[in-house]
Design a protein around this nucleic acid. Structure first.
Length: 822
DNA sequence: TAAAAATAGC
DNA sequence: AATCACTATTTTTA
């Protein structure tokens, strides 16, 4: 008890003074509906009737009639290691969440950039192959239906997304990514399962295995060729054996209407969520979605001794607005329960026509890009069950993107290179360029291609497959969604990384970098926008400017007859700032520099106020702005004879540490002024920035600058004052406590006197009396009820002084409102 | 003929 | 303080 109290008081003490109430208000934020939807899709379900109830997993209730007592797995389990609890809505990360340190092990860089989920530990399970998985449910990851928190009305759709909406979408995007990663990671683990591999091994002939594992006596080329031949053979067999009976993962889309989402149902042919046993069953029956097909193919190859990666082109919800909408949900009689679906699958199995569901399609039909119509889409006709049976026998055709979501990468050991193999969809081997769907593919959008190795480690191999990674793909990824996106993604990947870098890793990294650098310069103007390497003058931001000696590295024309525009390198783009802005960053524009640019006056918004008066007459051409090399670090005049320079408000501008004048020292403490005053040395309050609220900025003054020689003395006095304050506080607390004790004792004595002669029903009355006492003096601190020791310990924790006590509030009468305007 | 790119307007 | 974004329409290309 005492320990807990102490801990609490310590925590309080270390918290910043003013932020005592912020936390609670953040907690009050209602969990956006979108998160619930997402969790529902991820396998956690809210009770529609009573949202207060803890979430229950959907599958647990559906698979058999009585709900399971203790569902072992939630999506939280997927993402969060070793936490047995179910997901509660309260655990869902909020976009408004405060920062919490997540990756504790990575402290060498990026420290400030922790993943911003509160209360949810998004550290990832370490790749662990023998994790017990019995009873673990699969995630249901058809994230096809989403909506913005407030559904956008048709009229609103004209308007661009607000910043909040956009941020929200980015959060969703990231969260979805994490879920998908966890999902595939699990499937990848299943691919290593002995039993699964064992049952698949029946598909292999010894000849195949021999081909797949060429002896070292062959030449480099020979070994590579042998591996390829072996793969081809396995693929031929596998294609005929594996039947695609379900629809695999699709690209997730936003619903443009809330109702669409409410009525959303997974289609009947969507992949059945699995647990490991189901996966094993699938390995035996060889029926399922093409995704599972690729997974089993991966397992098959691994069982044959081939180094195979499971590759998935993740399909997270886009953060950009626009994009294909989800559309109205089709009228359905209601989704089949899992049990029904299993039954149906068995029916399918029984009267399957052997020739019909073979997933082969001539790749020539498919290879023409941009024809997402019937010819281009693979339409395997699932057998029509002879309908002697009841209604749910209607088996729909499976329409899927002609490009795969899952495939496999195989290590060509001879060449130390990973090569793709996709036997089921494109029937392509060693052809990375064949796997990227065209931009017009609404159901398959290649954004993050992730390869999972047998040991559980993960690589982002998107650049191997995306033809225009920098020009197009990157724009759909977190890296360009927010400034910290790149680090965030790095961090996520690092959680899945091997602890060390192998030679092969290095080779592959080099290869990917080489691919990226080989990417041709875009041929249209749009792709230059936000391109990481190139830049056009027309896309420069208002305050961006080209360095004077920037040389064009090419030209583009808009369309055919447009004038040619020069293509510059992004490296040669600088941001230019006004004099004032530079000053705020502690720099000063050199004399006689000609501005790099003039910022034209903004279009006047007639919103009633007419501010920025001084700007207009002085700068008729707009505000002059300069690049960094036109500036030097700003220096205040040095401290002379202990006298610190000050501006006309009696302050000193100290926006950055480099602005401390020579011979001066900055005392970053509220007590600095008082200390210096006590010592009688010259001091100047430091103006460290402005606080913008509404249209007026208010100066932020914190700490003082004193002469260097006085620094030590001032600091000593500051410390002294702090001690004194602490002592005072301690004393005050002690007095308070004693007063309370006195009161308590007096009450006791009174009680004793009153009840002295009533001995019979001592117990109950005793308690009543106590309660009355406790209530009677409300302002008595809690610790009055504790033991004295506790009290004393509590009292030196000290920071929660009630305001009414005469603490050491520094009066800021002498630095009133110094707002700098030039 | 249709997809992709540029452009115009808010 | 800082800042184009988004969609529909027209034009070009394969």
């Amino acid at each position: 008890m005492a320990g807990r109290k102490r801990a609490a008081s310590r925590a309080n003490a270390s918290a910043p003074r003013s932020s005592r109430s912020t936390r609670s208000s953040a907690r009050e934020t209602e969990v956006p509906r979108i998160y619930r939807e997402m969790l529902v899709e991820a396998g956690v379900q809210s009770s529609a009737a009573s949202p207060e109830r803890p979430l229950k997993r959907r599958r647990a209730g559906q698979i058999n009639e009585q709900p399971t007592k203790k569902p072992e797995v939630t999506s939280k389990e997927e993402v969060v290691d070793e936490n047995e609890e179910e997901i509660q809505f309260e655990d869902v990360p909020l976009p408004t969440a405060t920062v919490q340190t997540v990756y504790r092990d990575s402290d060498e860089e990026d420290e400030d950039d922790d993943i911003q989920f509160e209360n949810v530990d998004f550290s990832f399970p370490a790749p662990n192959l023998d994790e017990p998985e019995e009873g673990n449910k699969d995630l249901e990851l058809d994230f096809s239906a989403r909506t913005t928190p407030k559904s956008r009305k048709a009229a609103d759709r004209r308007k661009p997304l607000s910043k909040a909406e956009k941020d929200h979408r980015i959060e969703i995007h990231k969260m979805h990514l994490l879920c998908l990663l966890a999902h595939v990671a699990r499937r990848n683990r299943w691919c290593n399962d002995e039993t699964v591999q064992e049952s698949l091994r029946t598909l292999l002939t010894s000849k195949m295995v021999k081909y797949l594992n060429p002896g070292t006596n062959l030449s480099q080329f020979g070994r590579s060729q042998s591996l390829k031949d072996g793969l081809q053979q396995v693929a031929t067999t596998y294609k005929t054996k594996f039947k695609i009976t379900e629809r695999g993962l699709r690209r997730a889309l936003w619903a443009e209407n809330e109702e669409y989402l409410q009525n959303y149902q997974l289609s009947d042919d969507a992949e059945t969520p699995m647990e490991k046993n189901d996966f094993l069953e699938t390995a035996k029956s060889l029926r399922g979605s093409r995704d599972v097909g690729a997974q089993l193919y991966c397992a098959l190859l691994r069982s044959a001794g081939v180094e195979a990666r499971l590759v998935c082109s993740l399909q997270p919800l886009a953060f950009a607005s626009g994009g294909p909408p989800l559309g109205k949900p089709p009228k359905q009689k209601g989704r089949l329960s899992i049990a029904e679906r299993y039954a149906q699958m068995q029916v399918k199995d029984k009267d399957k026509a052997p020739e019909s569901a073979a997933p082969t399609t001539s790749s020539s039909v498919r290879s023409r890009l941009g024809h997402p119509n019937a010819t281009a889409y693979r339409v395997p006709t699932t057998p029509i069950a002879s309908s002697s049976r009841a209604a749910p026998q209607v088996i729909k055709k499976i329409r899927e993107s002609p490009y795969p979501i899952y495939w496999v990468e195989i290590l060509d050991e001879a060449h130390q290179k990973w090569q793709p193999a996709d036997p089921l969809v494109t029937d392509s081997f060693w052809k990375p360029q064949k796997l990227e769907p065209p931009a017009s593919d609404k159901e398959n959008c290649m954004t993050y291609v992730i390869a999972f190795e047998a040991d559980g480690t993960v690589k982002d191999v998107t650049r191997r497959y995306a033809k225009a990674y920098n020009a197009k793909t990157r724009k759909m990824r977190v890296e360009s969604a927010e400034p910290t996106g790149e680090r965030w993604w790095r961090k996520v990947l690092r959680a899945f990384a091997r602890g060390f870098v192998t030679d092969l890793d290095q080779i592959e990294a080099n290869e990917l970098v080489a691919i990226e650098s080989r990417e041709p310069m875009p041929r249209n103007v749009a792709d230059f926008k936000d391109h990481p390497i190139y830049a056009l003058e027309r896309h420069l931001r208002r305050n961006e400017v080209l360095v004077p000696d920037a040389s064009a590295s090419g030209t583009v024309g808009a369309g055919s007859n447009g004038p040619l525009e020069k293509v510059y390198r992004r490296k040669d783009v600088r941001i230019a700032r006004s004099r004032d802005k530079w000053y705020r960053m502690g720099r000063e524009v050199l004399p006689n520099e000609i501005p790099a640019k003039f910022l034209p006056k903004r279009a006047k918004k007639n919103d009633g106020f007419d501010d920025d008066g001084p700007e207009d007459p002085s700068e008729p051409n707009g505000v002059p702005i300069y690049t960094e090399d036109q500036t030097i670090p700003f220096k205040h005049p040095p401290v002379a004879n202990g006298k610190v320079p000050r501006n006309r408000y009696g302050n000193i501008d100290l926006y950055v540490p480099s602005m401390v004048p020579e011979g001066g020292a900055y005392i970053a403490d509220e007590l600095g002024a008082r200390a210096a005053f006590i010592l009688g040395v010259d001091y100047v309050p430091a103006l460290t920035g402005f606080h913008f609220k509404g249209r007026q900025g208010t100066a932020v003054l914190y700490g003082v600058v004193v002469a260097e020689e006085n620094e030590e003395a001032v600091r000593a006095v500051v410390d002294g004052l702090k001690d004194q304050a602490a002592d005072f506080e301690k004393e005050r607390r002690a007095r308070e406590v004693l007063r309370t004790w006195k009161l308590f004792l007096m009450n006791l004595r009174v009680r004793q006197r009153i009840w002295a002669d009533v001995d019979s029903d001592e117990e109950g009355n005793d308690r009543d009396a106590m309660n009355v006492d406790a209530k009677s003096d409300e302002d008595a601190p809690r610790e009055a009820e504790g033991d004295p020791e506790d009290v004393t310990q509590q009292s030196d924790g000290g920071d929660e002084a009630p305001d009414e006590g005469g603490g050491f509030m520094i009066d800021d009468e002498d630095y009133g409102g110094g707002f700098m305007v030039d």
